[in-house]
Design a binder for these strands. Sequence first.
DNA 1: AAGCTGTCCAACCGCCTTACC
DNA 2: AGGTAAGGCGGTTGGACAGCT
Length: 354
Amino acid sequence: MGRPSCCLKPKLRKGLWSPEEDQKLFNHITTFGVGCWSSVPKQAGLQRCGKSCRLRWLNYLRPDLKRGMFSKQEEDLIIRLHEVLGNRWAQIATQLPGRTDNEIKNFWNSSLKKKLKQQGIDPNTHKPLLSEIDEDKKNCTSAKENILQSSQQPFFNNSSYFNAEIHESSSKEHFLTKPVFDIPFPLCEFQAGFDPIGNTNSSHLLECHQNLRPALDQTHLEINQDFQFTSMPNLSSWHYEDVKETDFSDNSTSRSSTLSFNNGIKDSSSTTNGHGEFGTNNMVENEVFSWNNDETKLESLFGSFQVNGVKSEEVNVSYWEEDQPNRQNVENHNSFLLTTLSEDLTDTSFDFLI
DNA sequence: AAGCTGTCCAACCGCCTTACC
DNA sequence: AGGTAAGGCGGTTGGACAGCT
């Protein structure tokens, strides 16, 4: 038996948050910042536990949240990150700006798992489902031939996502002609898509880098510049010069009324006191989320980095810089490439150079 | 229109880790 | 060193909603 839930304390509200509660919490956080969550309910006049307040803020009220449907790029990225990280939603969420772990988790459970299954991919292992593996075995002429093939095409053979639909020959060729470089990367788990005969050269990581980066870039580019809230109808009474009612039918699944604050507000990196006056809030700007740090996140995944204190060779990232026309090939990504990363990135000391 | 069913997602639960005393 | 509180995270639940019969 664990510790009793903090929400079991008497007089504490549970369940859905009312707009009034949202406003109280939002006003409190934007005014005082994030401090001790356990004291927030009392200070904000809420009959909630601190944990509930924290969750509400992180998953819903944070102004940096990106609402609406996941883009194809985000979808691809989630799949690939999941292949590496598993159900570590919080870690996955760090690579999707504006998305919460809860949101990603829900999206995975409700949509992506089904989609992968429909494609004949086991969402847990990211390998072909057993029935398909059996079918593959029938089609194989010999085990020897398989080994030969895998040694020549170390990842494609075992790739869960390698199929005619998503891998055009051009991208495949491009993949196979990648330069080789060695970095001291922890090779902890290569059960998915890794060359069974030990072809563990770092070109795979480079591929990972090269294929994922454009997707990330695209994801970041697509981040809505608007600063928006949903399901906070009472907030509409605030006065913003640039507030406008916006139709998000193109990209929003919100069932509630939606407000959008345009660029002017977001660019100010400011928060509101509820009266249309914006004051810079360091908490929002720096702690909760910093758009300026997006690049840092990307670099942390793909740029110069250190593993357990050992600096990598600087990765040549010219692929997406020189090969801009191929950016549309983002969808031809190779999800398996990330399997060259450590199974447990959290246990690895990454000293990223910013 | 009413009832049923499936889907989505916000929120809770319980466990683990960390910080502090 | 041990106890406690708080934060963080992943799994799960239940209500709201949409679609179908």
